[in-house]
Amino acid sequence: MRTKQTPARPPTPRRRHSPGTPPHITNRGHVITPGHSTITPDKTDPSPPSLESRGEQTSAQKLDPAWVDEFAELWGNAWNAHDPAQVLELLTDDIVYDDSAWPKTMRGKADVREFLDHGWRAFPDLTFELIAGPHIAGDGPRAAYWWKATATHQGPIDPPGIPATGKQIEFDGVDIHDYRDGKIAKLRIIVNMNDIATQLGILPGPGSTAEKIMVGMHKLRSRHTRS
């Protein structure tokens, strides 16, 4: 009597995601394939690049808005911490820096350190707050910020030799950054120094008697110069 043989079961096909459904990639560099519970590292996507390395990638092209936002936060925190090391770390060694509050162009970190010490000595509670931006330029690795600042004049402004007044001031200004290799290579900060001087009492207020006298004297001097 022949024994009936049970046909061998075919192998179970391996589950695959349907055509047109790509694997999911997590923000930690892992690949998740639909239908599988395992997570395998994506060897082609290592840990996220650092802020500086991402800046290097954008030096010769349009800036990444996420990188600029992150840099702006670091920049503001460094100034508000009153820590020269934090500020200088975000500048290139050959930084070129023009500031309305300083009489000369700063070149290199030593010049910038002198300026920082000068400003924080006079205004030890100087604090910045971002109002708008960053606004990214379309023609190079450049961004601009609009900010406001508050401070109390608690130390001498020397030069030019103005003693502490104890007055509180508030002013706004603009930062213009040119980036290279993830740092600021060229910096321009623009503020209305006449407004600050008026708040400190160094210049007369608009429409005041003292201002009218100064204007009259200037006109008189100009008239004599022409004659």
Rank of each mutant, 00 (worst) to 15 (best):
G29W: 13
Q57H: 05
S47A: 14
G76T: 11
P84G: 03
H36Q: 12
P103T: 02
P65A: 09
D98K: 15
L91G: 04
K104G: 03
T40P: 13
D69Q: 13
S59P: 04
H82W: 11
W79H: 09
G76H: 06
K62M: 13
W79N: 04
K43I: 12
Y97V: 02
S50L: 02
S50I: 03
P34K: 00
L90W: 00
S100P: 11
L74P: 00
G55C: 08
H30M: 15
T38H: 04
K104M: 05
S53W: 13
D93I: 06
P46L: 01
I25G: 08
P41E: 10
W75H: 10
H30G: 10
V96G: 03
S37L: 12
D42E: 07
A81L: 00
T92M: 08
E89M: 08
K43D: 10
D45M: 11
I32Y: 10
T92G: 08
D45S: 11
W75M: 04
V68S: 01
I95L: 13
G29A: 07
W75I: 02
E70K: 13
D98W: 15
P23G: 07
T26N: 06
H82I: 05
Q86D: 11
V87E: 10
G29S: 10
S53D: 10
S59Q: 09
E52D: 09
A78M: 08
P84S: 02
E70V: 14
